[in-house]
Design a protein around this nucleic acid. Structure first.
Length: 570
RNA sequence: CGGGGCGUGGCGCAGCCUGGUAGCGCACCUGCUUUGGGAGCAGGAAGUCGGAGGUUCAAAUCCUCUCGCCCCGACCA
């Protein structure tokens, strides 16, 4: 491809609209342009990279036996009402009406559509298992779109849905997709990790996220360097604390005046004890009942873990009025002692504390030397602390580390949530009617491109992994007014294309410096230079973008050398 | 939705406080020179100063409303 016939509007300066590196580089390299918040156009170069990622996904999905389909973006409300998601999805669902006033939405995901298809067409166990996938544009009216392609309101996604006869079948489908995703992201040149995740309102019993490790990631992960356990912060468990030998003796409870001291910092400073000697009592409202949560003063609550533990539909902090009514004291002075009739959930990490400080359920008063059993009874224990760096791994007790990640893929075991709601059933060998067991599997395509850039760049620009590079090679002809250089270049382009190499030929009448800068920015893995100096020696120059490694080769051998190199570098 | 910031040729910005009719760098077009890491000179084209209303002899500048964009948070697959 001749650059003079192509469209790559590179920018010398960072556009003000972009903060994160992948967004800046995609704008500067002329890959994308913003149309509205969270909505982007792909220019030719950006689209080529996207298509490369899609190609890898198609190849691997097909190989795993999944069948490609193409489902509509526009989706009638009735299907969403069947699963109650028309209401449950909330404002994120892009809604619209047709000319007759009928409700529609732009699909944010396609469980309803695909389940509707399958319930009509699949009746027999002989038709299962089945895995349908598509690469489609999705719409989610995100509260805050950001970071370019990272979180958009309109974005590309590969979504797949597996349909199996039973639990054993969906296990197998899930495992196959897990392996497939691993292969896909490896080919995209990504350093990623599959982590255990909370399955959230999409439902289902089991879920993994594929996370690309990057500073700019929106998700926090806990990672165990010891055994490889990794989980989303929302999900991350913590090993149960070990009982301490030779614990202190229980001292008598004391009531202390703590005027105006509400927060953990204030109280611990006032009473001259560490925050870890405090047990804070958080009052939450879970589906209209108040629950008291006991947590060590220096720990944070993980609301998702609490919500899952309680099995609650809605969960939120209780209002100050409610707290006063339930505890008899104002906020900031709540405690478990004498808290009759309230369900008390104590975090596992406070189980072995002795002689700790709590609120006294009265204004400006705290209790010192409180102990379990003697002073109050916790109704139950649960792991509800938000995991943090240094917490012990639930599998091997090694200290976990906290890292950031970009979620590029997510696999769910759905079970029969959608098939039950929509009546997707089949007849088994014994003529018994059963619900189809489902799984669903997503990959953000544009986000994968962005994540690849986050992980593969330097101060000069993008460094494409070969499999997803929009062009594998950029050829710079340093002076296009010299006929011999042009002839040699054109010949080389032909030779490379004959070998199936994607080559971008910079045939612009620009000074060499401009071409070098643009080539670095665009980031093709291999750069070839045809210039006066080396041409006199009958050579062309080859440079590896990632390493900067340079070499020269006789003009006649250039194409072969380049092809060879592309096979070697990642 | 709460907080913060920003809207001035394609891009990056100055001008605004203290009103006087728009400027700089890059990019773009023409010509000449130049050609191994973002060239030089000369000439040129291009802007409803986000929008509406108001104050004023006069508004990019002051006031009110409004729209859009970015960042933090809350929210959410």
């Amino acid at each position: 491809m001749r650059l003079t016939a192509y469209l790559i509007p590179t920018l010398r300066e960072d556009p003000a609209e972009a903060e994160v590196i992948s967004h800046r580089l995609m704008l500067r390299a002329g890959m994308i342009r913003r149309v509205a918040a969270g909505i982007y156009s792909y220019l030719p170069l950006g689209y080529r990279a996207l298509r490369k990622v899609e190609g890898i996904i198609r190849r691997e999905m097909d190989r795993a036996g999944a069948l490609e389909v193409f489902l509509p973006v526009l989706s009638p409300a009735e299907l969403w009402r069947e699963t109650r998601r028309w209401d449950a999805y909330g404002k994120e669902l892009m809604r619209m009406q047709d000319r007759h006033g009928r409700d529609f939405c732009l699909g944010p995901t396609h469980e309803e559509i695909v389940t509707d298809l399958v319930r009509r067409e699949v009746k027999s166990w002989r038709q299962l298992p089945l895995n349908l996938y598509q690469i489609q544009t999705k719409f989610r009216d995100e509260i805050r779109p950001r970071f370019g392609l990272m979180r958009g309101r309109e974005f590309g996604m590969k979504d797949a849905y597996s349909f199996d006869r039973d639990e054993e079948g969906v296990q197998k489908s899930y495992a196959t997709m897990f392996e497939t995703y691993t292969r896909i992201f490896e080919q995209c040149g990504l350093n990623f990790k599959a982590v255990e995740a909370d399955s959230g309102p999409i439902g289902g019993s089991f879920s993994h996220e594929f996370m690309v490790l990057a500073e700019t990631g929106e998700d926090l992960l806990l990672n165990c360097p010891g055994c490889g356990y990794a989980a989303n912060l929302e999900k991350a468990e913590i090993a149960l604390p070990e009982e301490q030998a030779g614990a202190e003796e229980h001292r008598p409870v004391e009531r202390k005046e703590t005027p105006g001291q509400r927060t953990v910092e204030e109280v611990s400073a006032f009473l001259e004890c560490g925050p870890s000697q405090l047990v804070k009592t958080l009052l939450y409202e879970a589906d209209d009942t108040v629950v008291a949560v006991l947590l060590r003063g220096d720990h944070q609550l993980n609301e998702t873990k609490l919500k899952n533990y309680l099995g609650a539909g809605a969960l939120g902090p209780a209002s100050p009025e409610k707290i006063e009514k339930v505890t008899g004291g104002p906020t900031g002075f709540s405690g478990p002692v004498g808290l009759d009739g309230v369900r008390i959930v104590a975090d596992e990490q406070v189980r072995h504390l002795v002689n700790f400080v709590t609120g006294a359920n009265a204004a400006d008063t705290h209790l010192v030397n409180v102990n379990f059993g003697r002073d109050f009874a916790a109704s139950e224990w649960a792991d509800v602390k938000a995991a943090d760096a240094g917490d012990p791994c639930p599998r091997c007790r090694a200290a976990m580390e906290k890292v950031r990640g970009i979620e590029v893929g997510h696999v769910f075991k759905l079970g029969t949530k959608y098939s039950d709601a929509m009546g997707a059933r089949y007849l088994d060998e014994n003529s018994e009617e059963k619900s189809i067991v489902m799984g669903c599997y997503g990959i953000g395509t544009g986000r994968t491109v962005a994540a690849a850039i986050e992980q593969n760049h330097d101060g000069d620009g993008i460094i494409w992994p070969v499999p997803i590079a929009p062009f594998e090679v950029v050829l710079l002809t340093l002076n296009v007014r010299e006929q011999v250089l042009m002839e040699a270049s054109e010949k080389l382009v032909g030779e490379l294309e004959d070998r199936g190499v994607d080559v971008l030929w910079d045939d612009r009448d620009e000074r060499p410096g401009v071409k070098f800068k643009d080539a670095d920015l665009i980031g093709c893995p291999v750069r070839v230079v045809i210039g006066g100096k080396s041409y006199k020696r009958g050579e062309g120059e080859i440079r590896i973008r990632r390493t900067g490694e340079q070499s020269a080769a006789p003009l006649g051998q250039l194409a072969a050398r380049v092809e060879d190199l592309l096979g070697q570098i990642q």
